[in-house]
Design a protein around this nucleic acid. Sequence first.
DNA 1: TGCCAGGCCGGGT
DNA 2: ACCCGGCATGGC
Length: 222
Amino acid sequence: MGHRRAGDTLRRFYEVLDAAFGPQHWWPGETRDEVILGAVLTQNTAWRNVERAIDRLKSAKALALRSIRALDEADLAALIRPAGTYRVKARRLKALVSWIDARCDGDLDALFAKDAARLRAGLLGVPGVGPETADAIMLYAGSIPTFVVDAYTLRVLRRHFVIDEAAEYDDVQALFHCHLDRDPGVFGQYHALFVELGKRFCKPRANCDVCPLRDWAHDALL
DNA sequence: TGCCAGGCCGGGT
DNA sequence: ACCCGGCATGGC
């Protein structure tokens, strides 16, 4: 991959998208607990359905890690049902909360103060926490500057020939880590911009007639 | 009606 | 290392 051009292109993409869409205020969630729970609930799921599950947790006064800890797994599953794959997610939420408890006794300040690479490795060791979930938790709940790659990110970058079809999560993440300043605010906004672009102009099949990045479609890295 | 959504895991080859 | 089905709801 071209190295100098890579940074230029990624910065340019950001400028164009930021100008087109403005501040996105991600992650949508008022507390760190809510962000952490939402990161699992949104796995392969439309955010609309995640909101329903979050609303139900809120109504049950269970939108907190300590509530998840106290809830029976079957009851938790029933509460988060609108999010889909709810039995799987109930198990994953339980596992994640247990791990956080074991790690730092539920103290999120202590959790996120640890070495970032160690923290990420630890999160990846929790069954049901993959790279995107781990990075979303670290970035949006912990303000740790790790870049979140998701289906939208890959689709947008592939369609604009910034990455090839074979590029995987860590490859793409490394691209951003190498060429951009590690600013959690910028990383958070950038990821949000990819999602916004993906939803509006980069659907799985549709082409990108009025996509803000249209003029850059064939002028990228590879 | 089928495809999709802010993934991840386990089994098979 | 790669490929694939399962998980499951709700919207278009």
